[in-house]
Each structure stands twice: as C-alpha cells, then as structure tokens.
Amino acid sequence: MRYAMAIEVNKCVGCADCVVACQTENNVPIGYSRDWIVERVSGTYPDIFLHFESQRCNHCEDTPCVRTCPTGASFIDVGGIVKVTHDECIGCGACIESCPYDARYFHPDGYVDKCTFCDHRVKEGMDPACVSVCPTYCMHFGDLDDPDSDISKLLKKRENFTLLPEAGTAPQIFYLK
C-alpha cells in the first residue's frame, strides 16, 4: 500500500475549495491551513502561461521531518502517510525547519499539525476531503502499489512532475500537466 495524490494542473482553477474543505473537515483553526494554492505565471502579455497548484504535505518516501523528530511523534503510518502523534509532539519545530515544502505548522494547542491525507476518511473508504470536494475533479487519490488504481493508470498515461525533486525526498504528490 502506497498512498499518493495526482493533481491535474490543466483543470485546477485555484479556487481553494480544497483548503476550506480541509479546514472544516479537520478542525484546522482559522488562520492556519494544511493545504494551500500556488499560482504560477510566466511569459509576457499576450503569451502567458498560468497554472495553479494545490499544495500540501508530499508524504515523501524519504522524510526529513520524521528523521529530525526527537521524540518519534512524527512517523510514517500505513500506506506511507506521514503523521504526527499530537500527544508525543513537544513543539520543538525541527520538523517544520526540515520540511522543504513548508507543509507543517504550529497548532495553537501546542503541537505540530499537517495533512493526514484524511486517513480517518480513507479508512472508511472515502477520498480525502480536498479530493472529494474539488469542483473541477482535478485531484485523484489512491494506491500506487495497485497497478489497476486510477492514480497508477493516470501516472502511467500522463506527463507529470513533483515539487522540488532536487530535495531528494521522493514526494508522493504528483502534478499532471
């Protein structure tokens, strides 16, 4: 089992529905977020290129955040989901510093919080909240170890990229062109 996400940037409109759906689904306090939108523009009028990226924790295979956690609060769960055990987190911030994607934040209740791929939903057979709400159907979630899963097929078929591949973290969020 290797959970991953594929996001089609040719469809994403950057509406941030994924952001607010995550916030309400996961009780993320106002002012914080586990996912966010990046707008990328290049070119000169009228030859312009634009796409949006819905970004979040990349649930990397090689995880600097887990490696730097002094208490073991940061760990890799079933299916490669990178998580934080809130009770064990001392809020030292080492994981936040080490994450090349800036995907973690200090929760005002005193621990580090981040995307969980909505594992509480995934366990129930549902998609993460961000995927299930997206009005452009640009996000896909599934198991990369299953060659018949939609996400495996999509990644085989479509040209894709990951964020900061040079960081060597082997991200599990793929962007489809």
């Binding site: 529905d17 952001v19 607010v20 759906a21 709400v133 009005p135």
Partner: peptide, 11 residues
C-alpha cells in the same frame, strides 16, 4: 455533491 469554496465555507 461538490460545493464550491463558498458553499464549503458557508458555515
């Protein structure tokens, strides 16, 4: 079955 951000944030 999919609200837009405003609907999701309607609460």
């Amino acid at each position: 079955g999919r609200l837009c951000p405003r609907g999701t944030g309607g609460l």
